[in-house]
Design a protein around this nucleic acid. Structure first.
Lengths: 179, 179
DNA sequence: TGTCCCATGTAAGGGGTTACATGATTGC
DNA sequence: GCAATCATGTAACCCCTTACATGGGACA
């Protein structure tokens, strides 16, 4: 449901080919809406058919040849409408919390190590976000309107990772040293 | 991947029929691994075929007739193994953050209302969790081992909702009154 | 006997993931 | 020529979601 709008947003920020989009997703929009190149190509096809984007004239319909897309007015309008569309948050799905719940029934063997592993992963992700913040939002240029929104989004990611780091740290302390 | 283990956990806590499981999911395990009754019936069939659970003898294979399941030793063992299995956290997927990112490009019309709506939803979920905590984990009985784990899981849900409430509140303040 | 609810399913479709396939370009 | 890489796609599978179907039991 959301992937086409993620792609429209990325293409408005900068017209790109499928593979470029995939790369950019991996280090930007993908942080809160990930996608593989197969998904992206499929969706690009649908968006083109719907008249929301078009391939730039330079590119012929040859397999294996780079095809760059840009957003058409209809696509921009569809994206604007979508921004104001209400959509409930999807219920949480955490295999880790599920494991803890199961551990309450069949024993917590191996659970501690898994919590520690997740803690390390979230710490690493947090560090990555903080580096991005330093690079893209230095203190001096946090005024402009689009930047404020983009920075808010990044802060969401940062705060969420911080939450997990803190919660996992507390959970590990609560579990004690045993396994 | 996780659903069968969610079901095994629930069945170990209490043998149940498919519909009972669905109800219990809606107000317990489903808070961090939701499932519809169709998913549950399908998975019960697979678990039975795999020899991890069995229908209690009282129930014949008649359509429309209640069938209660219990976990077999093999199922318990499979669950124990799964608890210690490493699995990376799935990348975040938030349509709301995506909308904010899109709003930075095509304008934030309607975004403020949507943030406020989500804030109300998260507040409501937080209240529900807090009621459950009061009911199931009163201060006097927070010692026993399985309860400690279950309470940790609930705290995870509580802290996560609190996180969203705080972040959304801050985001709304940051956006200002305009639309 | 009709109606409601309990209970267990079936069917269709969509998105996501993984593995694989094919064509173009570049450098050695 | 050949290999590596860029680039676009196909195919199969699984899980989830939604809508619909069917049977049994309780009750007026």
């Amino acid at each position: 449901m959301s992937l086409p709008y993620a792609i429209l947003t990325a293409l408005l920020e900068k017209p790109s080919s499928g593979l470029e989009l995939t790369r950019r997703f991996d280090r930007s929009i993908g942080y809160f809406w990930s996608a593989t190149h197969q998904q992206i190509y499929r969706e690009l096809g649908r968006l083109e058919e719907a008249g929301h984007i078009r391939a730039l004239p330079s590119a012929g319909p040859v397999r294996g040849q780079r095809k760059e897309y840009e957003v058409l007015p209809g696509g921009r309008e569809a994206l604007r409408e979508w921004v104001g569309t209400p959509e409930d948050p999807k219920p949480l799905r955490s295999a880790l919390l599920l494991r803890m719940r199961a551990a309450a029934v069949v024993g917590a063997a191996g659970l501690r190590a898994e919590l520690a592993r997740h803690l390390a992963l979230h710490r690493a992700q947090l560090d990555e976000y903080l580096r991005i913040e330093e690079r893209d939002f230095p203190a001096e240029r946090r005024g402009t309107e689009p930047d404020r929104l983009r920075h808010l989004v990044l802060r969401g990611g940062i705060d969420l990772e911080r939450f997990w780091v803190e919660w996992l740290t507390a959970a590990l302390a609560d579990l004690g040293p045993e396994d």
